[in-house]
Design a binder for these strands. Structure first.
Lengths: 135, 135
DNA sequence: ACCTTTAGGATCATTTTTATCCTTTTTAGT
DNA sequence: ACTAAAAAGGATAAAAATGATCCTAAAGGT
C-alpha cells in the first residue's frame, strides 16, 4: 500500500544523480539513465517535465543535456515526488475536492493527519541531502 | 500519490458500519452494502477475507450475515488497511525484502521514517473510535 | 549540410483495480 | 426431506493505471 511508482523512483534517482555532479555540470540523458540504471526513454519524459517545472535546465544538440536549474538544497523531496506522482494524499478524502461524506466520516481526520506527517517529512528533505556521499 | 484504493475504503466503511451496531449484532451483507453505499459483490470478497483473519464472524443460511468477532476497540485501522492493501510501505525499499541499493540510497531512511509515522498513526486509531457517532 | 541531443506526440503491452457472475455449501425454518 | 436464504469460492471481464517504446520534429554545435 501507498507505494511510490517506478516513475517516482526514477525521478528521484535521476535528479539525485544530477545533484552529485559539480554544480552547473551538464549531463547527457543517456549518462544519467545508465548511471541510475533506468530506461532512458522513460527518464526523458520525466526530465522534460522537470525542465518545465524549473528543476532542471535542458540543452539540445551537441554538448547538450541536463543540469540542475537551482541549488540542490533548494529542491525538496516533496517537490520532486509531487511533480511526478501528484499531490500527496492518502485518499480522495483529503484532496482539494474535499470529502462529500466528511460529516459522518471520522476516518477523514486520520487521513488528514497522515497527509500532514508525510508532507512534513518530505518537505524537510532536500535533494542536496540525498546527494551527499558518505559522511 | 499514496492513495487508498476503493477496496480499502469499502473495507473501512463496511467494518465501521458493523461496529456501529449493538455488539454481537448480525448484519446482512446486503444491508451493509446498502448502508455504506458500495457494491455488495465486492464487499463480499472483502468480508470473506475479514472472516478468515478473525475480524468478523460469518454465518450462512437464513438469519445469517456478519458480526464483529472482537471488540471494535481491539481492531486498529492499520490492521484493516493492511488486511486489504498489504503492508504499509511507501516504496519497495522498505518492505521485508530490503533494499539492494541501500548502501548508496539515502532516500531509504526517509521512506523508513514515513512508514513509521504512517504505521504509528494507523496503529493508534481503532474501529471503535471511527464508529462513534457525534461527540 | 550534418550530426547530436532534447521535445513532443502517439502507441502499446502489462499489471492492477474494480468489479460481476455462477456454482457450491451451509443453515434455518416448515 | 424440502425449500429458501445467505455466505464461500472460483472464474471471468471491463476499465484504468503503469511502464515503457518509437518516431518525427526542433534546436544547437561543428
Amino acid at each position: 500500500m501507498m507505494e511510490l511508482t517506478r516513475k517516482g523512483e526514477y525521478a528521484i534517482r535521476g535528479i539525485v544523480h544530477l545533484a552529485r555532479l559539480p554544480h552547473g555540470n551538464v549531463a547527457l540523458l543517456s549518462e544519467i539513465a545508465e548511471a541510475a540504471e533506468l530506461p532512458q526513454t522513460f527518464l526523458a519524459k520525466i526530465f522534460q517535465n522537470f525542465a518545465k517545472l524549473g528543476f532542471v535546465n535542458s540543452y539540445r544538440g551537441t554538448g547538450g543535456g541536463f543540469s540542475l536549474a537551482r541549488p540542490a538544497a533548494a529542491i525538496t523531496l516533496r517537490q520532486v515526488v509531487e511533480a511526478v506522482e501528484g499531490p500527496i494524499a492518502p485518499n480522495r478524502c483529503v484532496t482539494e475536492l474535499g470529502c462529500e461524506r466528511s460529516a459522518t466520516c471520522r476516518v477523514h481526520t486520520v487521513w488528514r493527519r497522515v497527509q500532514e506527517q508525510v508532507v512534513g517529512i518530505l518537505d524537510g528533505v532536500t535533494i542536496e541531502e540525498l546527494a551527499r556521499e558518505e559522511d
